[in-house]
Design a protein around this nucleic acid. Structure first.
Lengths: 360, 360
DNA sequence: CTCCAAATTGTAATCGATTACAAGGGCGAC
DNA sequence: GTCGCCCTTGTAATCGATTACAATTTGGAG
């Protein structure tokens, strides 16, 4: 009764396969890894035994022996953010053919999470790391860098000497947004800000402002509107920015937002207040997330090459892993694209006056 | 010159720690795993050595020895879908305290992905599996079930004898939607369908229809509008449904949609055609994803307890893992909640006539 | 026929932890 | 003083693969 024979469907090991095929475990391993080094008939024999046993090599054993896990840790601030899920897809499509899998480290899922990520790296459960969070996670005085694994940072530059950056050209994006709104005839502009001090926010804001100044707009006609400090680039932050925007005395006629979510929040608030988009105020977002297509009006935005960022970043990482990395990899900037859609319109001076004329 | 001393920052092993602390590796292992079984001073000694070496146990070695990876595979149809990212968070919050990590198997990131997932399970790289996809992935004639790991299915019931289901009460949701719209006075209803034949779609549709009939609405006044077959519960499918809805001769005044994304697509199309929501047509979605808050009007919807589904599912799985599972776990249905917001309104018979009266 | 290189396969060490079992030491009871 | 038990620690086997090295076979050249 306590006999376990025949009940525990114990997984087959390489020894089982070897026994069945009448060869040594070394031969089985070779037949699977490099069939060319084994006689064709033997390979066939082994394959047959593999099939018969339903054998799949145990990955823990392989990892231990080879000292490689074929896994990459990807640290994302929030998995619910569309932006990151597209970057992730790009990462995956580049990594999969090279035999690497992805472990997602989601920062927003649990507070104590940071230390779990660090553990993962130090326990050698991954071979390399991709950061989408713009900083280097750490805990208990250790940071991810000290694990000594190859790291690249995507979407937000870190500027660490040993960590290549791959991201969209935020400076160009800000500049282009400034030029675009100015070219539509707007003379008073606002910037709905992201988290103050973040590299990304700074890049977009300074260049936006610079472009506006260059287009002849007065310094005091370019106002920076803060959002909700804690809420980063989110929708709720955009609503807060919207409230502040409405309170500006001589209200700007166009807003450049640090993200699409911010733009959505802001649009919601200003439209509730009775303003028309783009009639009374033009809005431009940043990112190009899918949701902007669902809006009415469809949001004009600076599209980041999300999937491309992921793909390029993964390629850089693969080069670091096989030692063929070049200095060119260290800082890659990918172009953004202005999508002019329905939330922006040329500014007509004194539209109300004209309206009155029509009526009168 | 070929001397490697001092350059390769080789990761410390348990042997290094043991040597430094002047004890055996067994003692180090015990001091870390169950400190109570080791003299306090020895523990202190070991801890000091651990700190000095910067030691973290190698997880591959541990996995091999213990035959457990402390990892769970979660199969999701698309990581970009908000619905799933919230379920994932629920899963993670329940799994993390038990010492389990999550590996996300994203079905939409690569076509050949299915076989990678199966490999993962057979290679014993995970201890258990959570399915969010509503079916059992397989490849090369093997399915995930055959790996012999504990499995639970979330969000969409599979009905497999060895796989517990945890999902929202779709039947109740459909029923409640039907009752709600009827109670608002609507006498002609439409259902914007999800993928035909899927368990989820069937449950929502049949119960919606049943509730409408029970409320005295005629059978021919309840029309099912198909979306885009390939596009599942998505926005584009909703747009297709919207076109078909517009083409209905004696057009219904309210639509119940199989998902929020479908509702968004449909709303976009019908509003483009000049109809007002909720003035001309009321719309109810299903899921309760964040994006519906961003809409104008805010969408009325049946909210699924997303995070709760994930949490409960993970708890069931943990019970299967430690052998304390009960039959009650086999099929769990969580209640949905009707969120009545801005996209639904009572139906006023002949509103145009009344409008004329006011003017006349 | 002999000899050497190439091709093929086997033997056994190895990766780094966990843990069963053995062994040593301390202490109280008799 | 001796015995036995408990507490603590060490020795060595083990998990399941990969791979360096050795051994054997094969085939061709001379």
């Amino acid at each position: 009764m306590s006999d376990k024979t025949g009940q525990g469907a114990r997984t087959a090991t390489i020894a089982d396969v070897a026994a069945r095929a009448g060869v040594s475990t070394a031969t089985v391993s070779r037949a699977l890894a490099k069939p060319d080094s084994v006689r064709a008939e033997t390979v066939a024999l082994v394959m047959e035994a593999v099939r018969a046993c339903g054998y799949t090599p145990n990955s823990s054993a392989r990892m231990l022996r080879t000292q490689r896990t074929q896994m990459v840790l990807v640290v994302v601030p929030s998995i619910a953010n569309q932006m990151y899920s597209h970057v992730l897809r790009g990462v995956d499509t580049a990594l999969a053919p090279a035999g690497y899998g992805v472990i997602i480290g989601n920062l927003d899922s649990a507070p104590g999470n940071q230390s779990r990520l660090v553990e993962l790296a130090f326990a050698r459960q991954v071979d390399a790391i991709i950061l989408l969070c713009g900083y280097i996670p750490g805990s208990h005085g250790r940071t991810l860098v000290e694990a000594g694994l190859p790291i690249v940072s995507l979407c937000a530059p870190i500027g660490h000497p040993s960590i290549p950056d791959v991201c969209a050209d935020d400076e160009a994006g800000g500049r282009e947004a400034g030029r675009f709104l100015a070219s539509l005839g707007h003379r008073r502009l606002a910037y709905a800000a992201g988290p103050k001090g973040s590299v990304v926010d700074t890049a977009r804001w300074t260049q936006f402002r610079a472009a506006a100044l260059a287009a002849g707009i007065a310094d005091h006609d370019i106002v920076r509107v803060e959002g909700d400090a804690g809420a980063r680039f989110s929708f709720v932050s955009g609503m807060a920015a919207g409230e502040r925007f409405l309170a500006i005395p001589d209200r700007p006629t166009a807003v450049f937002c640090a993200s699409d979510e911010i733009a959505m929040g802001l649009m919601k608030v200003v439209r509730r207040a009775g303003l028309r988009v783009p009639g009374d105020v033009s809005v431009v977002g940043f990112d190009g997330i899918d949701q902007v297509d669902y809006l009415d009006p469809v949001l004009s935005t600076m599209r980041q090459p999300r999937q491309e960022i992921g793909r390029r970043g993964a390629e850089v990482l693969l080069r670091m892993l096989d030692g063929t990395s070049t200095p060119d990899d260290h800082a890659i900037r990918l172009p953004v694209e202005l999508l002019s859609r329905e939330s922006t319109a040329p500014w007509r001076p004194a539209p109300r006056a004209r309206l009155k004329d029509v009526r009168g």
